[in-house]
């Protein structure tokens, strides 16, 4: 009668250990590419220069001497931001009055992913 052969159990055990180790390494490598993907997306999606530029432009437009020019330029900033940068840009200003010598501009920027709000004060 054939009996159960229990030789080489160490070899079988080591085989299991090695195969599980390989499996885990494969999972680690697989995950690392996903990490790169999300980092890249976060970096590429953040509208750093868009915000910086529209902010500078809003501040510049606030100090245009001609009132008609100011209205036109500010309307165009809103419309162009919406159509070319896919961002809702809104802003309003408080000119100096009473004892307060500063101009304040509230700036809101939102492109659906990133929102930026600021109250700017003239120096």
């Amino acid at each position: 009668m054939a009996r159960l052969n229990d030789d080489a159990q160490w070899i079988v055990l080591m085989g299991f250990v090695v195969s599980f180790a390989l499996f885990f390494i494969a999972i680690l490598i697989n995950q690392s590419t996903v990490v790169g993907q999300t980092t890249a997306e976060a970096v590429s999606e953040f509208p750093k220069t868009d915000i910086r530029e529209v902010r500078g432009m809003i501040i510049r437009s606030e100090f245009l001497s001609d009132e008609n020019d100011k209205t036109t330029v500010q309307r165009e900033i809103r419309n162009l931001s919406l159509s070319r940068h896919n961002a809702v840009v809104n802003f309003s200003s408080n000119r100096p009055g009473g004892l307060d010598p500063y101009t304040y501009i509230e700036i809101h920027y939102n492109n659906g992913v990133t929102a930026y709000n600021e109250t700017w004060r003239s120096e």
Partner: peptide, 22 residues
Amino acid sequence: SEWVIVDSSDCTDPSSGKHAVL
């Protein structure tokens, strides 16, 4: 992109006054 305030251009309204272009 870069914002510019211009007096007139091929693109904007021919009416006088400053315009914002991108």
